[in-house]
Design a protein around this nucleic acid. Structure first.
Length: 568
DNA sequence: GCCGTTTTCGGCCCGACTGTTTTCAGTCG
């Protein structure tokens, strides 16, 4: 049990977001609200713990944090609470902020519902709407009631964002069924999916066409649509297989600027538009304009160029310093998918994989790789038939035989050894020593305290036989939270002992995540991007890991499996 | 509440869609 709880960044960000919510409901200055939201965003994306900041002056170096907010953060990290927030919270009824989460309901509506009907929670709102008590409110009619009921239903159905993998393949499917249309000149996905965020709220599809109504018709006729939320001339939103899909159609001459706008992020776009204003230009989804004369719009590259910027890769567009870097000409030359030369974490039928080593090798060669590392589970993991010391020798014999038949490809002998709860490895050092690569990971006892878990992983990092720490936080997106881990201490230990951190490319994991990866590379750690494939098709997931690395501002040289030959 | 290559004060992104109060406010991205 910990005696002193340090408030984490995300909890502090949540306080600022909630302050913004309350101020909105109270109809206060919208720019003050914007400042709180911006600060919350900055904190959420921060790689370093706020509790490590030593002074108000140091806090003020963060973007969007000025004197007032720095003092508030300082108060939180010093006293674990914020007087201003406690007071503000009591000025509105408890639970009222949850109403804001209902689609279609914003701060103005919440304020009206409370002051005129005394509604403070979703249940009473649902009752009032069903009993047609809202119609008598100024500005509300039967359709508003219907919309609120639908909104509540939608809120209950899916509060969660879906994982990147699900959204990615769904978007491909939608594009595939639309792209055959003659009316469509170009089609692509945008939004957080194009930025390859780890979770996606809705799928954004962008189309270039001279006849938007034909595209709209075809879109609304797609299979799986359960509800049409909105339909206009150029924009419509539907619920498809429990996922919101937005379609936007523009003229081909505006495709680049629309793609830029639709890709976001919101904060990136705002900063870009502010930059345009400073240069005497105007930026919107139709183009870049100088005195009403369009100077860019067809190609996204030209939109950035017309603002004096190098092209900013979508994965960087989070307002995390990328615009400043583009102005200075210091944008990183990000790692690319084609830089990957091998996969250092592959399973086979020797443990819980579904394909043989040979089949995994054939797949890897079809991907153009030069090597893979076969890393089956050790026995402690509850999967069927982990590889013990004896079985490992047999598996290595098979790898030798396969290697003998290959000239331009190498199968590395490896293991994914379990890090037991006490920090000891599941196999003795003498079994690990002869291997080409040892990947270590925790699979059980994930609810240990931060101190225990950190010490446990560090003891593995310190073992000279261990080369890589796989999926370090153990999270399964949307299913299992990351274990409580002192990432900074882990990264430091990896640097000291030259141990590599994995970015697990499986979209269910993406672990390390983007911010941790960025922190690790900034400190000088090395990373590996691995699929952890349990069958041949999962080896195709590599690009999700590369995207996460790109979101973490990683270069080719930060990632060990861009090397032609794996050396350790 | 933040911020500065026209500003330390006066700005703060921009447009589509919806419903309702027939000219616009609210919401969303």
């Amino acid at each position: 049990m910990r005696i002193f709880m340090v408030m984490e960044n995300r909890e502090i960000a949540k306080i600022f977001d909630e302050i913004a919510d309350i101020l909105e409901v109270k109809n206060e200055d919208k720019f003050k609200i914007k400042a709180y939201r911006r600060a919350a965003q900055t904190i959420k994306n921060l790689t370093e713990d706020l509790s490590n900041f030593k002074s108000i002056k140091e806090l003020k170096t963060l973007p969007g944090i000025g004197d007032a907010l720095a003092k508030k953060i300082y108060e939180i990290i010093r006293t674990d609470k914020l007087e201003y927030y406690e007071k503000l919270k009591h000025s509105v009824p408890e639970g009222i902020l949850e109403l804001l989460a209902i689609p279609g309901i914003g701060p103005k509506t919440v304020a009206k519902l409370y002051t005129e009907c005394g509604i403070t929670d979703i249940e009473s709102l649902e009752r009032a709407a069903a009993e047609h008590k809202l119609q008598k409110l100024y500005g509300m009619g039967a359709k508003s009631e219907e919309k609120i009921l639908k909104g509540i239903e939608q809120y209950r159905r899916h509060q969660e964002r879906v994982s990147l993998g699900i959204a990615y393949y769904k978007a491909q499917e939608i594009i595939k069924s639309l792209e055959k249309l003659d009316a469509i000149e170009s089609i692509t996905y945008a939004g957080s999916l194009r930025r390859m965020k780890e979770t996606i709220g809705d799928i954004d599809i962008l189309v270039a066409s001279h006849t938007p109504e034909k595209v709209m018709d075809a879109f609304q006729a797609l299979d799986g649509i359960s509800e049409v939320i909105a339909r206009g001339d150029t924009k419509s939103s539907v619920i498809m297989d429990d996922l919101q899909v937005d379609l936007r159609v523009v003229e081909p001459g505006s495709f680049g600027s629309a793609l830029q706008y639709f890709t976001g992020s919101k904060h990136h776009n705002i900063k870009l538009r502010e930059l345009a204003i400073k240069k005497g230009l105007k930026l919107n989804e139709y183009g870049v304009f100088e005195n009403d004369r369009k100077i860019a719009g067809e190609r996204e590259e030209d939109v950035y160029r017309s603002l004096g910027l190098a092209f900013i890769p979508p994965e960087l567009r989070e307002d995390q310093g990328e615009i400043e870097a583009a102005i200075d000409g210091t944008l990183p030359d990000l790692i690319k998918h084609e830089d990957i030369r091998g996969d250092l974490h592959i399973h086979s039928t020797w443990s819980d994989g579904r394909n043989s080593i040979q089949e995994m090798v054939d797949k890897a060669r079809s991907l153009g790789y030069c090597y893979i590392a076969i890393c089956d589970h050790s026995p402690a993991v509850g999967v069927v038939h982990g590889v013990d010391e004896v079985k490992l020798l047999d598996e290595m014999d098979e790898i030798d035989r396969i290697n003998d038949s290959l000239t331009d490809f190498k199968v590395l002998k490896g293991i994914e050894v379990d890090i037991r709860s006490d920090g000891k490895l599941d196999l003795p050092d003498k079994a690990l020593e002869p291997l080409d690569i040892v990947v270590a990971a925790v699979h059980t006892g994930l609810s240990q305290s931060k101190e225990e878990m950190t010490a446990r992983i560090i003891s593995a990092i310190e073992n000279p036989n261990v080369d890589v720490i796989a999926h370090p936080t153990g999270r399964i997106i949307g299913k299992r939270d990351p274990c409580d881990l002192d990432i900074e201490a882990i990264v430091d230990a990896c640097i000291d002992y030259e141990t590599i951190l994995e970015i697990n490319a499986n979209p269910r994991r993406l672990d390390l995540n983007d911010t941790h990866a960025r922190y690790a590379r900034n400190r000088g750690a090395k990373l590996a991007i691995s699929t952890d494939a349990h069958d041949t098709s999962q080896m195709d997931l590599m690009h999700f890991g590369v995207a996460t690395a790109r979101r973490g501002w990683l270069l080719k040289e930060d990632v060990v499996n861009t090397e032609l030959v794996y050396v350790n």
